[in-house]
Amino acid sequence: MRKFVEGPVDRLQCDIHRYSKGMSRVRWPSLGGKEHDIWFTCTLRHTAGLFNITTFLRVTPATAMSAHQPDFLSWLTIGVKEKISASAVMVLMTRSPSVRVGLQKETTLHCQFAVDHKVPHLTVEWHLQQHGWHRTKLFSYSSSTRQTEGSGVAVKGIAGGDASLTVPYTEVSSEGTYVCSVRVPPLNGSVDIALHVIERPRVSLTTEEEQIPRVVCNAEVFYPLDVEIHLFKETSSGQLPEKLEDVTHCSHHKHHDGTYSVTASVRLRPSPQDSGCAMYSCRVSHVSLRGLYIHKSIIGPGCWTWIHLTLPGLVCLIGVIFMFIVLTRRSCCYGNKTVTRR
């Protein structure tokens, strides 16, 4: 297990559970395997989400269990301070237990396994679980029959323990829990990978010149649904931006690809306290921004900024310089002419 572990060991969470084969009497194929072996699973999870590792541990008890009852009815009793020796025979892991990806992207879900004997008879499967218990088979491969169903996994890599799945084009419908299963009789292990589709909003801020002007902030084609929009007003008095309360939020619009758009607007009604021009800003927060936000600003309608004031003057200045150059060249040309008297 150590060769699969990365990062500081103080970030690991370890769980050990008994594992039941039920009524199966299949012997583990490696050296020392017995039909009455008792099994455990040891799962290591990195608390920062770097990996999940599940290892199957084999213990051979001194006495054999009955062949006519499930193995869990004759499990080995372990004392409080008692130690037992176990052999790690199969490891199943993922380095992508949780994946965040945007729309129309290609992403690879990592799944790797290792077995303690060569050329095991194994079956690899991938399923997508959505909306409760609804499961869709995406891929399957059997080493005994060499048959393959589905796509996304490089069959050549399975022999080396790589069962990673490639999702070529992500959509909203790609979201869910992907389950990588590896079966080597009598063991059946799996790892879950949560795929989250995250698309950041496209934000625009405009003014609409109506009888009562308004500022409109649009957040478009984002996913998932929840988004927060706040509008602010800042005057030339140097005070902190004022959060506007009288904001109208339109209902979310759902697009055909599953993304959403929403609009927030505020009507500009001047008050006696207003002096000079105002700047309006829109602040949009969404899960795709990881605690940050998108900020857009715009000058209020009817305001003259330094751009408006200097742009005409700049145009006039360029015209004057151009005319000065033209007249200077003309005067030079006339001054250099040779006058011939008859």
Rank of each mutant, 00 (worst) to 15 (best):
4 F>C: 14
13 Q>S: 14
13 Q>N: 12
16 I>G: 06
19 Y>F: 13
34 K>I: 12
42 C>R: 11
48 A>V: 09
50 L>P: 05
54 T>L: 01
58 R>Y: 07
59 V>K: 15
62 A>F: 04
64 A>R: 09
67 A>H: 01
69 Q>K: 10
73 L>T: 13
76 L>W: 11
77 T>M: 05
93 M>R: 09
96 S>E: 04
98 S>C: 06
99 V>G: 12
99 V>P: 10
103 L>K: 06
103 L>H: 07
106 E>R: 12
107 T>N: 03
126 W>H: 10
136 T>K: 12
143 S>G: 06
144 S>L: 07
148 T>A: 05
149 E>Y: 05
153 V>P: 13
168 P>A: 04
169 Y>S: 06
170 T>W: 00
174 S>N: 08
174 S>A: 05
175 E>F: 00
180 C>H: 09
193 I>T: 14
194 A>H: 11
196 H>C: 00
200 R>H: 03
205 L>V: 15
213 P>M: 00
219 A>H: 09
225 L>M: 15
227 V>K: 04
230 H>Y: 02
232 F>G: 06
232 F>S: 02
240 L>Q: 10
245 E>M: 01
246 D>T: 05
250 C>P: 08
254 K>C: 08
258 G>R: 06
265 S>P: 12
266 V>T: 15
267 R>H: 15
272 P>E: 07
273 Q>L: 10
282 C>Y: 01
283 R>C: 11
284 V>E: 01
286 H>A: 09
295 H>N: 03
300 G>H: 03
312 P>Q: 02
314 L>Y: 03
314 L>R: 11
318 I>K: 05
331 S>P: 02
334 Y>M: 10
338 T>P: 08
339 V>W: 01
340 T>G: 10
342 R>T: 14
342 R>F: 10
